[in-house]
Design a protein around this nucleic acid. Structure first.
Length: 466
DNA sequence: TCTGGGGTCCTAGGACCC
DNA sequence: TCTGGGGTCCTAGGACCC
């Protein structure tokens, strides 16, 4: 907690709906609902006109339609939202170098390092006037959107403040008044207190922040766990030192989809997972990322949600690898009869991200040049694969036939696919009809029993194509 | 035909290593 | 032939946020 009210939180009002009303004058003053329009869609944003009919975010679109049948239901134009968001973030970054976007429509701004001369000092009046002017700049830069702003001595207080006078409001919480502000509020104002935590606290007789303040750290930890408990303990006292972080690295990339009917057909499920994996790979590449852990997410007809994950020995951004692994994980679930009642959602994600790509692993490591072999022994001298690594002739490297995801054939073990590479070794996963997630074995890359497999080679010994 | 999509963080247990 | 603790990695699930 700071001595001055120097943390600003900005929240664009009913953002998606407001962009639609801005771009389509016929929608102005009318109820607008943006979200999933399919049979299983939910509301992302409702305009204030629609909120008067009880339409809320996260409500099913079906329910929203019954509450407000005459509203305009739109599926959303994310390009327009993104570009409008960019314009807002630019306005904020012109004010201070420390801007932390939370989503397309929300951001924290650190006023303590503000570069804008309009903010002379951090006194209440100055900050208030400055924030008011900032709201005007955002209004102008977005073609008329309104924002609510909160300013306080911490992220927590700024965020609570921006919620107090919505829409189109401004609240500055004076230093020293934070605890009085929070005490009468329901515990759910605290970030991290959702339905489950609120219910646990309620059963313990804790409803307001004031109630929470009177609970010891030990009691709190036993109620909600260690990390969460200590967090709540401090936030209940308005103690919050979380810094504003301008850029954070992505930890995962995922694609998921909910289908209007529950799916059971194996080939359809596999095709959908393949498509999602391809999308994930494209997004990884676009951002120069690759990852090691592939996760398959499945939501069943009864809303039970399962996940299965598997970690590769080295990161990949290849669609073939991600798709294959995701299909293997799906196959495990199907074979266990888990999906018989139908699948409503499928998702594919990649985590364990590295900001370097597969090619980097390839050259020296796989070739095992004298340099690398000499430089990294020391503690792992008992690794036979390294022994004569510089003699290794790497077949078809130019075609990347040994890259993860590619098919190989072993003379006795049969068909498999490359699971990982490194240090002159190829790790192969063998799949058979009896055992789709078959054994994993490692081979030297010059093992004569292991050959890249191509459809036209099938059974032949030497394919002299091209 | 209640219940999206894209994320983050935490917990807990088992494997494995020292 | 009894009994350890810590650290790290991996997997699965859950809560939460916008």
């Amino acid at each position: 907690m700071r001595a001055h009210a120097s943390v600003l939180h900005l929240d664009l009002d009913a953002f998606f709906a407001a962009v639609e009303q801005r771009d389509k004058p016929s929608l102005r003053g009318k109820p607008v609902v943006v979200g999933g329009v399919g049979g299983r869609g939910v509301v992302a944003t409702a305009s204030y006109e629609a909120r008067r009919y009880g339409v809320r975010s996260a409500m099913s679109t079906r329910e929203a339609r019954s509450r407000c049948p005459h509203a305009a239901f739109l599926s959303g134009r994310f390009h327009a939202y993104r570009s409008t968001s960019r314009a807002v973030m630019e306005v904020l970054r012109a004010v201070s170098p420390l801007v932390e976007p939370l989503s397309l429509d929300e951001a924290f701004v650190d006023l303590a390092v503000a570069t804008d001369p309009a903010l002379g000092g951090l006194g209440i009046e100055e900050v208030t006037a400055f924030a008011e002017e900032l709201r005007g700049r955002v209004h102008e830069a977005t073609g008329g959107l309104t924002a609510s702003i909160g300013v306080g001595t911490s992220k927590f207080i700024a965020k609570v403040a921006s919620d107090l006078d919505k829409p189109d409001g401004l609240v500055v919480v004076a230093p020293g008044t934070e605890r009085d502000l929070l005490r009468p509020m329901h515990v759910s104002v605290i970030p991290g207190v959702g339905p489950a935590t609120a219910e646990r606290l309620r059963r313990a007789g804790i409803h307001t922040v004031a109630d929470l303040e009177s609970v010891t750290l030990d009691e709190l930890t036993s109620l909600v766990g260690r990390a969460h408990g200590t967090g709540l303990f401090h936030l209940a006292r308005a103690e919050d030192d979380r810094p504003i972080v301008a850029e954070r690295e992505a930890k995962s990339v995922s694609v998921e989809g909910t289908y209007d009917t529950d799916l059971v057909d194996r080939r359809l499920l596999e095709a959908l997972v393949t498509r999602q994996a391809t999308e994930v790979a494209a997004r990884l590449r676009k951002n120069g990322l690759s990852g090691r852990t592939v996760t398959l997410k499945v939501r069943l007809h009864d809303f039970t949600t399962l996940s299965r994950s598997s970690t590769l020995p080295s990161p990949t951004d290849e669609a073939a690898t991600i798709a294959r692994l995701a299909r293997t994980l799906l196959g495990d679930l199907i074979d266990q009869q888990v999906t018989v009642g139908g699948v409503r959602l499928l998702g594919v994600g990649v985590s364990g991200l590295a900001d370097w790509v597969q090619e980097d692993l390839f050259g020296p490591d796989l070739l095992g040049t004298a340099d690398t072999a000499a430089s990294d022994d020391g503690d792992d001298g008992d690794e036979p694969a390294d022994a004569e690594a510089d003699d290794v002739v790497l077949p078809d490297r130019a075609e990347r036939s040994w890259a993860p995801g590619h098919d190989v054939e072993h003379t006795t073990l049969g068909r498999g696919w490359v699971w990982g590479t490194g240090r002159g070794v190829v790790t192969v996963r063998f799949e058979t009809r009896d055992s789709p997630a078959g054994p994993v074995r490692s081979f030297r890359v010059d093992d004569p029993e292991l050959t890249p497999w191509r459809p036209q080679d099938d059974g032949g010994e030497e394919a002299s194509d091209t």
